[in-house]
Amino acid sequence: MSYFALVAFIAIIGSLGAALYFMLRGGQDADGKTRPNHMARALAVRVGLSILLFLCILIGWKLGYLHPTGIPAGK
């Protein structure tokens, strides 16, 4: 499960980097064609991956695959 979380974090950062790349290019393709929706698509992928990661962590916790650590409740 921790490998999945690591891969998901890398994919989220990669998608954010792709959005930055498309933003800096001004919506232009390598051929010079204008394609303004690449940045929005990359950000939508990032949001989707973040939601999927959150749901997987929540389900893993409910099923007992993940155990919270840290400061115990009530102290």
Rank of each mutant, 00 (worst) to 15 (best):
I10V: 14
A5Y: 04
I12H: 07
L43D: 00
F54C: 14
L53T: 10
A5N: 05
H67A: 09
V45P: 01
A11H: 11
D31F: 04
F9I: 07
R35C: 04
G48Y: 04
G48D: 05
A40W: 10
L43I: 05
I13L: 14
L6R: 09
C56S: 13
A8F: 02
I71V: 14
A73C: 08
I51Q: 03
I51P: 02
K75W: 09
A18W: 10
T69R: 14
D31R: 12
F4D: 02
V47S: 08
A8P: 03
T69S: 12
F22D: 00
T69Q: 09
K33C: 06
I71R: 11
W61S: 15
I12G: 03
I57A: 03
L63E: 00
S50T: 15
S50W: 03
T69V: 13
F22T: 04
F4V: 09
V7L: 10
G26D: 00
I12N: 04
L24R: 14
I10L: 13
I57T: 10
G27D: 00
I59A: 15
R25A: 06
L58N: 13
S50M: 15
Y21K: 15
A18Q: 11
K33P: 07
G17Q: 15
F4A: 11
F4M: 07
A8D: 03
F22N: 01
Y3T: 09
L49G: 11
K75I: 11
T34Q: 08
L63P: 01
I71W: 12
G32N: 10
K62A: 06
G64F: 02
A18R: 14
R25D: 06
F4H: 06
I12W: 01
W61F: 12
D31T: 12
I51N: 02
D29E: 05
V47Y: 11
H67Y: 09
D31K: 13
G14P: 07
L53G: 04
A42V: 05
Y65A: 11
L63N: 06
F22C: 02
G26L: 00
H67K: 15
L24G: 10
I12L: 09
L58Q: 14
M39N: 07
L66T: 08
C56Y: 02
L52H: 05
L63K: 11
I51H: 05
A42E: 02
L55K: 13
G60H: 03
C56P: 01
G17E: 08
A40E: 03
M1K: 04
L43M: 10
R41E: 01
Y21A: 07
Y65K: 13
G64L: 03
M1G: 04
Y21N: 12
G70N: 10
F22Q: 00
V47D: 07
A44S: 07
F54Y: 14
L6H: 01
I51F: 01
A19Y: 01
S15W: 00
M23F: 12
I51W: 01
I71F: 13
F54R: 15
G60T: 05
G74C: 14
H67C: 07
Y3D: 05
S15P: 04
F22A: 01
A11R: 11
G17S: 15
V7E: 04
P36I: 05
